[in-house]
Lab assay of single mutants.
Amino acid sequence: TIEDAIKKLLKLAQKGQPYTFGDFTVTSEEEAKKLAKWLKKQL
């Protein structure tokens, strides 16, 4: 689910690992949080 993807994304971001989700490449926890907010709006 999208919720699971968001959780995984935040965990990876906390470890400092870049994470690619579709067109987004997230390289920081701050970016992960922005992406998570955006994804929730898409639901």
Rank of each mutant, 00 (worst) to 15 (best):
K11G: 12
Q14T: 04
I6R: 00
S28W: 06
P18L: 12
P18W: 14
A36D: 03
S28P: 02
G16M: 06
A5F: 15
Q14K: 07
K41C: 10
E3S: 04
K15D: 14
E3L: 13
T1K: 09
F24I: 10
I2S: 01
F24A: 12
E29N: 05
Q17H: 10
P18F: 06
Q14C: 14
K33E: 10
L43Q: 05
K33D: 05
D23L: 15
L43W: 09
K11I: 14
Q42Y: 06
D23S: 13
I2L: 10
Q14P: 03
I6A: 01
Y19F: 15
K11A: 14
K33W: 13
Q42V: 13
T27A: 09
K40V: 12
F21C: 15
L39Q: 00
T20M: 08
A13W: 13
E31L: 11
L35T: 01
I6E: 00
P18H: 09
K40W: 14
Y19I: 14
Q17N: 04
T1E: 03
Q14V: 07
A13R: 04
F24S: 02
E30H: 08
L39Y: 02
A5N: 01
Q17K: 08
L39V: 02
W38S: 01
E3W: 15
G16E: 08
D4S: 11
P18D: 04
E30A: 09
L39H: 00
A36L: 14
L35H: 00
L39F: 01
K41H: 10
F24Q: 12
Y19D: 05
L43M: 06
D4N: 08
F24G: 02
L35A: 00
L10A: 02
F24K: 01
T1W: 14
L9P: 00
Q14W: 15
E29T: 11
Q42N: 04
A36S: 05
K40M: 14
T27S: 07
A13L: 13
Q42K: 06
L35M: 02
W38E: 01
K34R: 08
A32K: 02
L10N: 02
K40T: 13
F21N: 02
V26D: 01
K41V: 06
G22D: 14
A13M: 08
A5V: 15
K8W: 14
G16H: 05
E3D: 06
A13S: 05
S28F: 11
I6N: 00
K41W: 12
P18Q: 06
F21Q: 02
K8T: 07
L10Y: 03
Q14R: 02
Q42G: 05
E30Y: 15
E31N: 07
V26M: 12
K34M: 08
K15I: 12
L12W: 15
L43R: 02
L12D: 08
K11V: 11
Y19T: 07
Q14D: 06
L43H: 07
G22P: 05
F21D: 02
K34H: 09
T20E: 06
Q17L: 15
K40L: 14
D4L: 08
G16Q: 03
E31C: 12
